[in-house]
Design a protein around this nucleic acid. Structure first.
Lengths: 233, 233
DNA sequence: GCAAACTTTCGTATAATTTCGTAATTAGTG
DNA sequence: CACTAATTACGAAATTATACGAAAGTTTGC
């Protein structure tokens, strides 16, 4: 067995056992302990395992730093429910628009069950999460709107206007009983309109916390939306 | 048997055995070990196999290459030094291109000392880091190249071509003594060329680990670069 | 055509590097 | 403090990189 084969073998073993001692690895792989330690140092420097006195533990993908935005996410549970419901409207082969909201971000994990989908989003965060799940995706690019981690502006909208999507999932800051869907930034309202214009269907994802909140900019009205997805009925 | 026939024969053998020694290949194909090694270097630079001391292993598609974004990056200290040195070439008010390399990513924290700069990058990761530092930035958008967390393709290049930048900071997988700067993916090489074309100045950031590594795709040559920034002189 | 100059390919020889075990020293743990 | 584990140092064996030259194939100019 070659060195790099041994490295992936160590990872395989860890995948199964989560942690193991240097001594056991040494016996299992028929090499001396110093060799195992060298291997582990390397794997540690690559950030794949964590060494401890006497052994190693697998570094879980859990402790990644990215979801900073999503961590401080409120109503995360309802959003998850809504996201799952939304996947009902996805078909294999669809071209999907996702806006840059945290609600919509929760759809990502569910999308990997579909084949040959292409996703277009204006959120770098969602784009990267899609990438992690192995989902082919395009990002619009444009000016980064910092507080909402979204690309906006003419560049972003131009990109959107070149795509013909099957479905759009979007959210917003608030909606009113009368059907007005509103947001607090022009730029974001604008790009959502652009997405809506170029998508066959548009699903509005909203949790109850958004009810009866009115912000400065109008996105659209309930009647412009194919369906509204909520946690309740 | 011609050279390229030998190459595909090596791949065939590997397909079946997954890994094999240089010595065995040498005997099976009736050529000397150095010849096999040359073949393997080539196949490796094409990303089809992984060399290891004593032999080669097939690069499984499944070979879970930890995405850049989760990988703790190596040579982080030298990269930090290089990044700091690079900031010497930034002026207030500059429009700056940053490519999607981890070396270049280390520049971000130093950029917040400059006023009125605008940064354009094809990396969602760098874009978000810039955002966190409060630096005004645009991302190119385009197709997400997963393993390097970079946007590439015609959309990304089109965006770049609309920008006139003052400086570009870029890196690559490898460079040779003779001045060739190369990378392992066409797409990434291509977008770097596009950035170079539209920037007044271009600084190549390279740490010693990249020395004398040759990959399949040419980006440019030392003479096309304004200055090379290294950890040493 | 044809020969000279050039390029590509490959083997040989040698220098440099990698890998890995042993042994000695240092550090960590209960 | 005793015991185990980790680090460091070092040497041996194997592998690889490099330099160089020979042979075969290509290109160029006449």
């Amino acid at each position: 067995m070659y060195t790099i084969e041994r490295h992936s073998e160590i990872l395989n073993i860890l995948e199964e056992k989560k942690s193991i001692s240097v001594e056991k690895l040494s016996k299992m792989l028929y090499v001396s302990a110093p060799t195992i330690r060298r291997d582990l140092s390397l794997l540690e420097s690559q950030g794949r395992v964590m060494r401890t006195h006497g052994g190693v533990v697998l570094k879980q993908a859990a402790e990644k730093e990215i979801p900073l935005m999503l961590r401080e996410d409120q109503n995360s549970d309802s959003k998850k429910i809504i996201a799952k419901k939304a996947t009902e409207f996805v078909r294999d082969g669809d071209v999907i628009f996702l806006d840059a909201s945290s609600t919509v971000a929760h759809i990502v994990p569910y999308l990997k069950n579909f084949k040959d989908i292409i996703v277009v989003t204006n959120s770098p965060l969602i784009s990267m999460k899609l990438g992690e799940e192995g989902i082919r995706n395009y990002c619009t690019g444009g000016l980064l709107l910092i507080h909402s981690v979204a690309y906006v502006g003419s560049e972003a909208e131009r990109f959107v206007s070149t795509i013909n999507a099957d479905v759009l999932f979007f959210s917003s800051r608030g909606y009113e009983e009368n059907g007005n869907i509103t947001d607090s930034s022009v730029e974001e309202a604008s790009i959502r309109k652009a997405m809506m214009k170029n998508s066959e269907k548009a699903y509005y994802l909203c949790d109850d916390s958004k009810k009866n909140k009115k912000y400065m900019y109008n996105i659209c009205s309930f009647k412009d939306v194919t369906k509204i997805v909520t946690e309740t009925e």
